[in-house]
Amino acid sequence: MNEDELPRPPYPADLLADLHAGALDEEVAERLWPLVREDSDAMAVLDALGAVQERLRGLADPDAPGEPMPAEVAMRLDDAVLGAVRAHRRRRRMFAGAVVGAAAAVVAVVAVVVVGGVGFPGPDSSTEGPVTPIAEGPDDAAALEPDTLRSLVGSTDLGPLSDDRALADCLAANGIDPAGPVLGSRTIEYGDRDAVVLLVPGGVPPQLTAVVVGTGCDATHPETLYVTSIG
């Protein structure tokens, strides 16, 4: 825009609003500002825009009055939150039970080895036993071990979350940015539920986060079954 193309007073209000908001091309704005400052009508518009911003900032006051939450929304939120709290507690109890069970099993094995003495023919670690499939659930410790989870990087098995939108909704519901990458995935059984392990970047690289969600996970039902950080 050369000198002749620059607008002259009276300046259009929408141009002034763009100038005020920094929405104009930088070079144009630099040339326009001195002209506008010379025009009292234009400056009155800019002052009014500044005053609007000031009034808007007043709404940031948390005690500024507003319309109360409709009862039906409050009831819906109450149900959702209470449901999530109770589901979380159930999962924790289940998990604690599994841990206690696993610990008891370890104690039993140790006891047998000790009682059996040095010569007791214990399990041969070189023997190729049946590989426990990941699909056995959370009480299969190997399924959620860091190495097992890391090995999921690059594999895609999303089951019902194969649809992009379903996956994005599920990620968002779990507080994970849907725009970010899913590094690996696998369908598993978690306890008695069909579930999907999603591997995503963790908070600090090279950390990873593995989230196990139920297959019904959607925008409003995160169905978070298990979350762990690796690395």
């Binding site: 929408d14 609003a17 763009d18 908001a21 920094g22 929405a23 518009v45 825009l49 609007v52 009034r55």
Partner: peptide
């Protein structure tokens, strides 16, 4: 975002009687 803010603030100034 800038141009939406520009238009929005301008309309608010009109609605609020400042312009």
């Amino acid at each position: 975002v800038k141009s939406r803010c520009a238009r929005g603030r301008y309309k608010l100034a009109v609605l609020l009687g400042d312009l």
